[in-house]
Design a protein around this nucleic acid. Structure first.
Length: 101
DNA sequence: GATTTGACTCGCT
DNA sequence: CAGCGAGCCAAAT
């Protein structure tokens, strides 16, 4: 695996401000590989749970959490986001995609 | 070293 | 406007 890619992905995710989120594709692109959105997900999947990385700020291209609503993972991610200041509008999470400006 | 898998996307129906 | 399908490509087995 390319260590550099991984490192950039982790760094980028870590740099997402509170109250914002980013998409897998965006992370992959900024990490240097526009077509590796899935690899990003893969990396997050095998993250150690003791990691301080805000993986829950990463969502899919549709601005949603990439888990079925009934799954525990979904619940946890949503809760963490809510705890970070994300609000609910019209029953949906008000997710603002970070733009690395 | 080949095969399967997936926390993705985009485009067409 | 929601749903489905095919493309993509690294990581894991």
């Amino acid at each position: 695996m390319e260590e550099e890619f991984k490192h950039r992905v982790y760094t980028l995710i870590g740099s997402i401000p509170i109250g914002f989120v980013a998409t897998y594709g965006q992370i992959a692109k900024l990490a240097g590989s526009p077509r590796h959105a899935r690899a990003v997900g893969y990396l997050l999947k095998n993250l150690p749970m003791d990691s301080a990385l805000p993986w829950y700020r990463v969502i899919n291209g549709q601005g949603k959490i990439s888990f079925p609503e009934d799954s525990e993972k979904f619940q946890e991610q949503q809760n963490r986001l809510l705890a970070e200041g994300v609000k609910i509008v019209s029953g949906k999470l008000s997710l603002k995609v970070y733009q690395w400006r």
